[in-house]
């Protein structure tokens, strides 16, 4: 008869490694895999769209500077968070985030709904020197963002990469038409990869995020990104318990 001996595993590093991985992955498979099949995971909600080329580059800078090390973008469904930050974050709101910026460290406040809370001018001054706006702040200074021109030469390639993982940026006329249907013509235009550079410059000019229209700085991109965070869903259109049914 088959006579199992613990000793086999203890004396065989290869077997031990495989057995350990199997044991650990059970937890992941049971907890994570079903979420891809449960239909309520991503809520049905209007307004969520992929980032424009400028916002997307701003997000890259957010990641590059490690803002996520001090800031989460995930308002949890708790009373104190609802009172301070507003409506809890929906999965649908980060459906086009690759990777998402939920984070797990809050040295500073959550940023999931910081969009339109402050003026562009405030963000610019705050990023250059946080203490000048909030005297007790421990956030570092990021003065180079204003003086560094944004490198947007490869923005089309970046959007193509995101398209590869399922973000609906359009390359063909067919994809563009589908976006017009899904997001409306105004948004669809900003998602068209062949026009990415043109759209990026146009948004920076029109928005004038860093207060200087003569060039596109990294500050333009980052502030454009911060100002759109959490603003895509209009919660006033829904009952305040609309999203309970998705959990």
């Amino acid at each position: 008869m088959f006579n199992f001996k613990h000793e086999w595993i203890e004396k065989n590093v290869g077997l031990m490694l495989i057995a350990t991985m199997v044991a650990i992955s059970i937890g992941g498979l049971v907890e994570i895999a079903p979420l891809f099949f449960i239909k309520e995971t991503v809520e049905k909600v209007d307004g969520v769209r992929p980032y424009t080329p400028l916002e997307s580059r701003g997000r890259d800078i957010y990641v590059r500077e490690g803002c996520y090390l001090c800031h989460s973008q995930m308002i949890r469904p708790f009373r104190d968070e609802a009172l301070r930050y507003g409506h809890y974050s929906l999965s649908a709101e980060s459906r086009y985030d690759h990777p998402f910026q939920w984070g797990s460290k809050r040295t500073g406040p959550d940023l999931a709904r910081v969009g339109m809370k402050y003026s562009n001018d405030w963000h610019v001054q705050h990023l250059i020197d946080p203490k000048s706006m909030v005297p007790p702040s421990v956030m570092p200074r990021y003065p180079w963002l204003l003086t560094t021109a944004l490198d947007y030469s490869d923005v089309a390639e970046r959007l193509k990469a995101l398209r590869q993982v399922g973000v609906p940026y359009s390359l063909t006329q067919g994809e563009y038409d589908r976006n017009v249907k899904d997001f409306g013509a105004d948004v669809a235009r900003t998602l068209h990869i062949p026009d990415a550079q043109k759209n990026l410059i146009a948004q920076a000019q029109a928005g004038n995020f860093d207060g200087d229209r003569s060039n596109v700085s990294e500050m333009d991109a980052l502030v454009a990104y911060l100002q759109v965070l959490g603003t895509m869903v209009d919660f006033s259109k829904y009952d305040n318990d609309e999203f309970v049914k998705f959990r």
Binding site: P77, F78, A82, Y88, D241, V244, R247
Partner: peptide
């Protein structure tokens, strides 16, 4: 909820938040 409708769904953090 904000429409004044009383509901009793299964427990979830979101429903619990409504109650809190």
């Amino acid at each position: 909820n904000d429409k004044g409708v009383e509901k009793s769904p299964h427990w979830s953090t979101r429903a619990q938040l409504m109650k809190d």
